[in-house]
């Protein structure tokens, strides 16, 4: 079997109303998902962060929630809207203090949108606390996986739309 994906508008309403997009995922082949690689670059003492998002998800989100219906991620304005949005959804900090993520840019390749961030630090932190809420407010089944890579070892953490707590990855400096 192969699974399909259907988008439909969702209204949340008790006293007021808000609108968001929702993916039906009971039988979804491709649930809304993202993959982020966060790599520690020893030479630069920095984290390189690359978010890979599905083009279709980004376009729907930009047009219907993040910005206005004329927005497209194929132009730089739409990319900037996405980057600003993600500045509020993807966060990292360490026991040594906040990790400032500098936006670098975004680009579209094939079915994916890549968003780049960078964090320059004075030294490798002992741990990184990550929160990735990207599109959690838009797609109810959004699943974000973050692969943190240090010294060729990958640690994966996953953020489902039903959870908003940070996840901690400990980093131990190898001899």
């Amino acid at each position: 079997m192969r699974f399909g994906k259907i988008l439909s508008i969702v209204a949340l309403s008790t006293l007021g109303a808000t609108f968001a997009f929702q993916s039906q995922t009971a039988d979804a082949h491709r649930t809304s998902s993202s993959l982020t690689t966060m790599i520690w670059v020893e030479a630069d003492q920095s984290f390189e962060i690359t978010h890979r998002l599905h083009l279709h998800d980004v376009q729907q989100a930009l047009r219907n929630v993040i910005a206005d219906p004329s927005t497209t991620v194929f132009d730089i304005k739409g990319q900037a809207e996405l980057i600003l949005y993600m500045a509020g959804t993807f966060m990292a900090e360490s026991p040594q203090g906040p990790i400032i993520l500098d936006p670098i840019g975004a680009e579209v390749e094939g079915d994916y949108v890549y968003v780049y961030q960078e964090a320059r630090l004075k030294a490798l932190p002992t741990a990184v606390s990550i929160t990735d809420l990207t599109f959690h407010d838009i797609y109810s089944e959004q699943e974000n996986q973050v692969n943190l890579e240090y010294k060729n070892q990958v640690t994966s953490v996953v953020f489902n739309a039903s959870e908003n707590t940070a996840k901690v990855v400990k980093l131990t400096k190898k001899p």
Binding site: L12, S140, N160
Partner: peptide, 20 residues
């Protein structure tokens, strides 16, 4: 079911009920 809108500025007890 999923619970709570978890975007920071609206985080809280925002349980959702979708059209689907």
């Amino acid at each position: 079911v999923s619970r709570a809108n978890s975007r920071p500025r609206t985080a809280g007890d925002n349980d959702r009920f979708s059209y689907n």
